Amino acid sequence: TRVETATETAWISLVTALHLVLGLSAVLGLLLLRWQFPAHYRRLRHALW
């Protein structure tokens, strides 16, 4: 049971790290898009909202 718990903890930390990385890359990508294509971003936002 001790090994299982350790594996579970490792998986949880791995998944958390993955989610953090994905979230950060998504935010960075959005910022980059907004910085590179302001007109396109505004049009996209206008279409979405």
Rank of each mutant, 00 (worst) to 15 (best):
L48S: 08
T7L: 12
L48P: 00
T16M: 02
L14S: 02
T1F: 12
L33P: 08
G29T: 13
A47Y: 09
T16R: 01
H40D: 05
Q36N: 15
V15P: 00
R2M: 12
H40V: 08
W49Y: 15
P38Q: 15
I12M: 07
T1N: 06
A6F: 03
A6M: 11
G23W: 07
S13T: 14
L28Y: 07
P38L: 12
L28I: 06
A47V: 11
L30H: 03
V21F: 11
A17I: 09
R45H: 10
L18I: 04
T9G: 12
G23D: 05
I12H: 03
L18G: 03
A47I: 11
L14Y: 02
T16S: 08
T16G: 03
A39G: 15
H19T: 03
V15F: 04
L44W: 10
L30R: 03
L32G: 03
L31E: 08
L33A: 11
L33V: 10
S25N: 12
L14N: 04
H46P: 07
L24Q: 08
V21S: 13
S13K: 02
Q36S: 15
V15N: 03
H19S: 04
A10E: 13
R45S: 00
L32Y: 00
T16Q: 04
W11P: 05
L14P: 05
A47R: 14
E8M: 00
G23M: 12
P38S: 15
V15L: 10
T1C: 10
L14H: 06
A17M: 10
F37Y: 14
L18H: 07
E8W: 01
T5V: 04
F37T: 08
L20D: 02
F37P: 00
H19P: 01
L33D: 00
F37D: 09
E4D: 10
L33M: 15
L32Q: 07
L32F: 00
L14C: 05
L44K: 03
V15G: 04
P38T: 10
Y41K: 01
A10T: 09
V27A: 09
L33R: 06
A6T: 09
L31T: 13
T9A: 13
A26L: 11
W11S: 03
L18Y: 03
Q36M: 15
L32A: 14
L28A: 03
A6P: 07
L48I: 15
H40I: 07
R34E: 07
L33Q: 06
I12V: 10
L20I: 11
L31D: 06
T1H: 12
V27K: 03
R43F: 10
W11Q: 00
L44Q: 00
Y41V: 15
E8D: 10
R42L: 14
V21T: 12
H40T: 08
T5M: 04
L44I: 13
T7V: 12
H46I: 00
A26P: 01
T7N: 13
L22R: 04
E4L: 12
R43M: 08
A17C: 10
T1P: 07
T5F: 01
L28F: 08
S25P: 03
H19K: 06
A17H: 05
W49L: 02
V21Q: 01
V15T: 03
L33I: 07
W35F: 15
F37N: 10
W35Y: 15
H19R: 04
F37I: 08
Q36L: 10
S25F: 06
A10C: 00
A6K: 09
A39F: 12
L22C: 12
L14R: 01
